[in-house]
Design a protein around this nucleic acid. Structure first.
Lengths: 236, 236
DNA sequence: CGTAGAATTCAACGCATGGTGAATTCGAAT
DNA sequence: ATTCGAATTCACCATGCGTTGAATTCTACG
């Protein structure tokens, strides 16, 4: 398609600085450009749908250079999808405030993360690839479940904490899928705080509410008495 | 790997009925076997991760035969992921019963569908592929959103029905992802009715509850008063 | 200036993939 | 028995992919 690589070499034309090879003259942060391109394309098409050649083209670079910097495609993916989230800070912000709005704060932080343009491609790429690629699945899981959700579960003292945390995870994943992957209206275009007001109570109930006497056999989940946490009052 | 296609032809051994070609002797429903294999592999690896050769091998058939029956790979996908859900019946079952358990019934039906072994591969395949493939996305959307969700929204008479329905969709998608795709415990192994009891109230609130005075401009969403539909009760 | 090393590209290998067209074999109708 | 069409396979093609190794060009340091 593109006439770029038509390196015919016909005719004389020896010294008219035909093609550039070897190291580039000025050229700033090439490595960074590759990484950015990779992030964008992974976000758009997922792991399988992304080709190293596309990444290279988008970064205006030879495919071999991609390998030179980041070895295999999987390693490139890992490098591109890695980002620094200050889990500690976020958790602290979530834990602070009236408890009947715990869920609202979680949703707000969650959506707030996705709405940050430097972060969204990463999360999108992970989400798009996690359904297929095991590495992506592990990263996504480690980023949502083993991180914040585990921490949240730690805040609760009840034995059914894992279940509550997983319920929260399910609603969060659903929001991410509907709002950012599928882009279903009106949720896709909704303001963050509005969404938080709508979905927050769900999470609050999952975490602190009375989920009803459950328990398949022996009822280990009932332990929490009437409400959940043995501490003062669950929901206010 | 498999020594099957080692058609060496060494030595004499001319007439010992060497290799089978052409039409097979007895052979029942080959087309159906191909379809079943396709469904299983699509469910496991998604659209991108599935190769026609794998499907053919799993059905013990030549790859060309797959093309013979179902043209392109996309068409095979569409054929394999199609299934008859009696949306009408399901909807009727959902609409019948006490309205404060509307959500429970929805969750129960939803999970009930996923738990049926003939149907799960289809839904899994769609879910695994929808994040990447546009065709799969359209099918998934048409199956969940344009089908039941739209119908549910129709039951409500309020102007914010689409929003309520999409919220329901988000929680359902989240459950599907956590329970069937990611297989996170304890939700993955939970009994259907137990899950329904936990998540049902969320959906009931999304559909009928007072979601708080919302509205970016002009608060149109309040219409539902305290509980929701003002009519005698579309939900019985 | 000279030179080492990093950055960058070229050219290609090997492989797997989706797809095609002709050939072969069987079942069923004539 | 012959014939016709469906079922099934073979042998390919063209393409695109991830990856590699050697070559080239620039920068930085002595």
């Amino acid at each position: 398609m593109s006439p770029i690589s038509s390196r015919g070499g016909e005719g004389g034309e020896a010294s008219s600085q035909a093609v550039r090879r070897g190291r580039r003259p000025g050229s700033g942060d090439t490595r960074g450009r590759i990484l950015a391109s990779a992030r964008a394309i992974f976000a758009e098409r997922g792991f399988d749908g992304t080709t190293i050649r596309d990444v290279a083209a988008s970064a205006e670079v030879d495919p071999a250079l991609v390998h030179h910097y980041f070895g295999t495609k999987q390693q490139l993916f890992v490098a591109a999808m890695e980002f620094p989230i200050e889990v500690r800070t976020v958790m602290a912000a979530i834990a602070t405030g009236p408890r009947e709005q715990l869920g609202d704060r979680i949703v707000a932080r969650f959506v707030g993360l996705w709405d940050r343009p430097e972060i969204r491609p990463t999360l999108l790429g992970l989400a798009r690839s996690a359904t297929t690629d095991p590495v992506a699945a592990a990263m996504f899981r480690g980023m949502l479940v083993d991180g914040p959700l585990h921490a949240i579960a730690g805040l609760l003292r009840t034995p059914d904490a894992p279940m509550r945390a997983t319920l929260v995870g399910s609603q969060l994943v659903g929001i991410a899928m509907v709002r950012y992957v599928a882009r279903l209206e009106p949720i896709a275009s909704m303001a963050a705080d509005e969404l938080a007001a709508l979905v927050g109570p769900t999470l609050t109930r999952y975490l602190l509410g009375d989920l009803g006497a459950v328990g398949p056999e022996g009822g280990q989940g009932v332990a929490a008495g009437t409400a959940g946490p043995a501490s003062a009052g669950p929901v206010r």
